[in-house]
Nucleic acid binder design. Structure first.
Length: 573
RNA sequence: GCCCGAGUGGCGCAAUGGUAGCGCAACCGAUUUGUAAUCGGUAGGGUGGGGGUUCGAAUCCCCCCUUGGGCUCCA
């Protein structure tokens, strides 16, 4: 049961009550409406309905109006304990409610009503409708009954409600701000990439960001004993039959290509290729742990409705690695991988994130014993690092337990990013082994891990995280020199050469436009350093420095400028 | 995939039955400028694709494609 005292649960209660008022309003407008459920959510509430006609956003003001009316009636929310049979009668025209009632334990059920509107509800609620805070209906959408696509599609109305108008306005402002930070919008404005049916085209400015991240990634992996590999984009499909991917993920695979009686598939995973490299010769325990890393591009046919900018795509590059090790190396390898995740995220300015430990699902490969051991190894590695993880019981993949980190987009939606997964399935299917000190053959343990997730998803989150103002070392253009008049261009070129020679991505904006326009555009492009040069600067051998934040740092000599820029050129770690 | 919404020049938008227009960008010209949009001119689309209704279709109907929100948060 929820506590009544904390402000958070007060807000939840209020939103839940708001959902009931929404339902009452909708039933008022559509007496034949069938009700689904209407809970409070993290930042608002919704209610699902089956209605005689589709709703559109244009219906929302009318429904809101009706809600206000109900609020003004100041009806009490009244709970009632009713016998199950009686409740079934009360809701005899509500098939979805019937379904819920028949699944409830016990023979008495709580029903709430405000005015003549009755709803099945555990509560709690506000005491009267007038206590509800300022609210707003936000959007409509479809939602399967019980989230199951075999069930009918209902119409969902989302809204939110706060204790004060200021909080509501702030929330709506945040929504607007999130829209400005949306990576799809920034991707266009900053000319970073475009996406066509889930396939990404990286434009020059996005490509340089990506390649800088990849360079950094490679260096950090080499430092940590990983070996870089490349594997082909297509393989004979026998490999995917053997790995089980073909059977398991059939619907996500692109169809086969046939040539000379052979069938090839575009790879949906990098693991089989890495296993082939491992198995290219006999391995000894002395070779372990063997860490093979690849920025491996994979293709999966995601359902059209789930595609979303760079966050869910059909072709993406995993920052993948497979660690082949002996059972006693597992814990330390996991631990190192977790540390690498932390290091990587920290290097890109992500400070707050949560680990999620997912355990054995209902359908699983391997033995109970393997799972038990692996889960405790994952947990152990986290504990030794002083980290806690949220537990997701049964959330593991069929082939092994995993630890994930979610990255959040500007709207607060979480997306799986870094992940460390144990795999019991592939070593068995491919008989991946090594010769132990005893001269016998032993099965290897495989750890599959990605410390960023995928380049696409990671860069999407990075873009939203910084609102397009990437750190200097990742900025496509790091400095722009703006000559005030044409006669300053040659001085500007000299400054450009000087800093280009020092590895700065700098350019001169020599267009025949006014300085004001160039400054404006430089700021909109989030260029970190804006260097204005005119007569004064040329005489003194300086530049006038302005930052994308709008801050004006005044006149700087070139050595002074270098002192400012140089420390920003490398990732701070 | 499913529900609802949207697709109009490179981008952002207008025109809801009378034959497509605005801003930015592009191009040409003028201007040489002191920290978030200089001025003028030129060109560019037949409205995502296909079919239909109509004297006449961005506008209405049907099919398809693309795209946005959602389909997890358990009375």
């Amino acid at each position: 049961m929820e506590s009544f005292s904390s402000p958070m649960s007060d807000l939840k209660t209020m939103r839940h009550s708001a959902a009931h008022i929404l339902a009452q309003a909708v039933v008022g407008l559509f007496p034949e409406a069938r009700l689904g459920i209407g809970p409070a959510t993290e930042d608002g509430f919704y209610y699902d309905f089956e209605l005689p006609r589709p709703l559109s956003e244009d219906d929302l003001p009318q429904i809101e109006e009706r809600m206000r009316e109900i609020v003004s009636w100041n009806l009490p929310f009244v709970p009632e304990e009713v016998g199950k049979e009686k409740v079934k009668e009360m809701f005899d025209r509500q098939p979805y409610k019937q379904e819920i009632i028949s699944e409830l334990q016990g023979d008495r059920v709580t029903v709430y009503h405000q005015g003549d509107f009755y709803d099945l509800c555990r509560g709690p609620h506000l005491s009267r409708t007038s206590e509800i805070g300022p609210f707003k209906l936000l959007r409509t959408s479809g939602a399967y009954w019980r989230g199951d696509e075999k069930e009918p599609m209902l119409q969902r109305i989302y809204g939110t409600c706060f204790e004060s108008q200021e909080r509501l306005d702030l929330y709506l402002q945040n929504l607007a701000e999130a829209e400005r930070r949306d990576h799809r919008r920034l991707g266009k404005e900053l000319d970073l990439f475009s996406v066509h049916e889930g396939l990404v085209l990286w434009h020059p400015k996005g490509a340089i960001i990506r390649s800088l991240i990849e360079d950094f990634w490679r260096q950090e992996h080499l430092k940590r004993g990983y070996q870089l590999v490349y594997t082909p984009h297509i393989l004979n499909q026998e490999v995917f039959q053997k790995s089980g991917h073909l059977a398991m993920y059939q619907e996500f695979l692109y169809p086969p290509m046939s040539l000379e009686g052979k069938e090839y598939r575009v790879k949906p995973m990098n693991c089989p290729g890495h296993i082939m490299i491992y198995q290219s010769r006999l391995r000894s325990y002395r070779d372990l742990p063997l860490r093979l890393a690849e920025l491996g591009t994979v293709y999966r046919y995601e359902r059209s409705g789930t595609l979303h900018g760079l966050l869910r795509v059909r072709g993406f590059t995993q920052d993948d690695a497979h660690i082949f090790c002996s059972p006693d190396q597992v814990e330390s390898e996991i631990s190192e991988a977790v540390k690498l995740c932390q290091f990587m995220l920290g290097s890109f300015g992500f400070e707050e994130y949560e680990f999620i430990l997912s355990t054995r699902p209902e359908k699983y490969a391997g033995t109970l014993e393997m799972w038990g051991r692996a889960e405790s190894q994952l947990q152990g590695a986290l504990t030794n690092l002083g980290l806690s993880a949220a537990l997701e019981e049964g959330g593991g993949v069929f082939y092994g337990p995993k630890v994930d980190i979610k990255l959040y987009d500007s709207l607060g939606r979480g997306w799986q990013g870094p992940t460390i997964q144990l795999d019991f399935n592939l070593p068995q299917r491919f008989e991946v082994g090594y010769i132990g000190p005893d001269g016998g053959e032993h099965q290897v343990v495989m750890i599959h891990r990605a410390v960023l997730g995928s380049m696409e998803r990671f860069i999407a989150c990075l873009t939203e995280h910084y609102g397009g103002a990437f750190p200097v070392w990742l900025s496509p253009t790091q400095a722009v020199i703006i000559p005030i008049a044409d006669r300053h261009i040659s001085y500007a070129r000299g400054v450009e050469e000087e800093f280009k020679g020092r590895g700065v991505r700098v350019e001169v904006d020599a267009r025949s436009e006014r300085m004001n326009l160039k400054v404006r555009e430089a700021i909109l492009q989030r260029i970190p350093y804006i260097l204005v040069v005119g007569d004064k600067e040329e005489r003194a051998g300086t530049v006038s420095l302005r930052l994308r934040s709008g801050e004006d740092l005044g006149s700087k000599t070139l050595p002074e400028l270098w002192q400012i820029i140089q420390p920003e050129l490398k990732p701070c770690s």
